[in-house]
């Protein structure tokens, strides 16, 4: 970014001398639609900081340092905006509004300096660059938020729970894609090793749809578990899904499939030699 100090002297002088007016007008323009996400006072405070930094960056003894500070402050501001659910337009407009303010100030002052047009152009250029910076930070922050959430979702959705000594279960919820299945597979297999469990139930009650790809993923997981010496049972295939699977020609081969998690647990308890007996009442 290029700011040539001294080039915009008149504008800087104007902004300095009529600082309060400029700030009020800027707040008014930038805060046209706050809808309670930010108070007017807060906004004015933020813009006040920005304006002082900007004036220092344009025309001050420490222009370089002030410019860095300005960049940091702007980035911070747009990061906050992104998290407060401001739209990109609102965020960028907050900066661009300064052009309007300066234009109004210049018109009002009735000045007709010879180099005024150039100064306005240069100033407008500066503001544009700041606006673009705002926008870039905004987009980056939003992307960060999205990837964070995706990661959290991935972790949330793959718990491995222990049902009994030596029996673990993975309740799957949502849509299964390659990435998720990979996580499920790794978590399940690692848990088998860590807990020394011989049996695992993969419960797909919460899986919305099973297509050939998902079935393939499930088969792979079960085969891998077998290779490690554990046995996997599938449970909770819903009626419509069972019909779809038959229609698609998906076969689970010799993999045991049970209607409900309870059935699967009962089956595995029997396999591991545990017998459940109801005590006689009284």
């Amino acid at each position: 970014m290029t700011t040539q100090p001294g080039e915009q002297t008149h504008i800087v002088e104007l902004l300095r001398s009529r600082r309060e007016t400029a700030l009020d007008r800027w707040t008014e323009l930038a805060g046209a639609e706050l809808r309670g996400r930010l108070s007017r006072g807060e906004l004015r405070g933020e813009l006040d900081d920005l304006l002082s930094l900007m004036l220092r960056a344009l025309d001050g003894p420490d222009a370089e340092a002030a410019h860095d500070e300005l960049t940091a402050a702007l980035s911070e501001m747009s990061r906050r905006r992104a998290r407060q659910a401001f739209t990109p337009t609102e965020t960028a407009f907050g900066v661009f509004a300064l052009k309007q303010v300066v234009y109004e100030l210049v018109t009002e002052s009735g000045s007709n300096r010879p180099r005024l047009t150039e100064e306005l152009m240069a100033f407008s250029h500066t503001v544009d660059e700041l606006g673009l910076l705002t926008f870039e930070t905004y987009a980056a922050t939003r992307e960060q938020v999205i990837s964070d959430q995706a990661e959290q979702l991935l972790e949330l959705s793959t718990p491995v729970v222990k049902l009994w000594e030596g029996i673990v279960a993975v309740p799957l919820v949502g849509t299964l894609d390659s990435a998720r299945t990979q996580v499920v597979m790794e978590t399940l297999l690692q848990t088998l090793v860590d807990t020394g469990s011989l049996y695992a139930v993969i419960d797909i009650t919460g899986v919305a749809a099973v297509d050939t790809e998902v079935a393939q993923h499930l088969m792979k997981t079960i085969k891998a578990a077998r290779l490690m010496g554990a046995e996997c049972v599938i449970s909770g295939i819903r009626p419509q899904i069972a019909q779809t699977m038959v229609a698609l020609g998906i076969e689970f081969g010799d993999i045991v499939s049970k209607a409900s998690l309870a059935d699967a647990l009962e089956y595995l308890l029997a396999r591991s030699g545990v017998r459940i007996v109801r005590e006689e009442a009284g």
């Binding site: 297999l189 088998l192 891998a224 578990a225 077998r226 290779l227 490690m228 010496g229």
Partner: peptide
């Protein structure tokens, strides 16, 4: 015995299910 998860996944991806081999944790 003692196959690591990563090894098991690799073998499955390679299409090897070690048909006749018994396995244990």
């Amino acid at each position: 015995v003692g196959m690591r998860p990563a090894v098991a996944i690799t073998l499955v991806e390679l299409g090897l299910s070690l048909g006749g081999v018994q396995t244990a944790l």
